[in-house]
């Protein structure tokens, strides 16, 4: 996935990757990444947990504006099934 992001970015389109394996991202170095140490197949969280999914999308889109250095990996530290999420109420980024 990081390889695809790099290609898209060379076409002038900013990308944000949600990643589960930091070690792979450190090798492939996608332009920007959100690291969530969650099970494979669950990059945005648990089925039915809309607030969690929207929180991941929000923090990912936010990174499109905040990351200034290529290869940056943001780790929000959200633990699997041990966090409470609230739907973002404002999306006026940046």
């Amino acid at each position: 996935m990081g390889l695809i992001a790099r290609v898209i970015e060379t076409f002038g389109i900013p990308t944000i990757c949600v990643i589960g394996l930091r070690e792979i991202a450190e090798r492939v170095r996608p332009p920007r990444a959100i690291h969530l140490k969650w099970p494979f197949g669950h990059p945005l969280g648990e089925p039915g947990n809309r607030a969690q999914q929207l929180c991941v999308i929000y923090i990912a889109l936010q990174a499109l504006y905040t990351v200034r250095e290529s290869g940056t990996i943001i780790d929000p530290g959200w633990r699997w099934r041990r966090e409470e999420y609230e739907e973002p109420d404002r999306w006026d980024l940046p």
Partner: peptide
């Protein structure tokens, strides 16, 4: 991947969210 990137650019996409397996 360049084919997809080209189509994204042609459609004037401003940003891409990528999600893995």
């Amino acid at each position: 991947a360049p084919e997809v990137a080209g189509m994204l650019r042609q459609e004037q996409i401003d940003a891409v969210l990528l999600t893995p397996a």
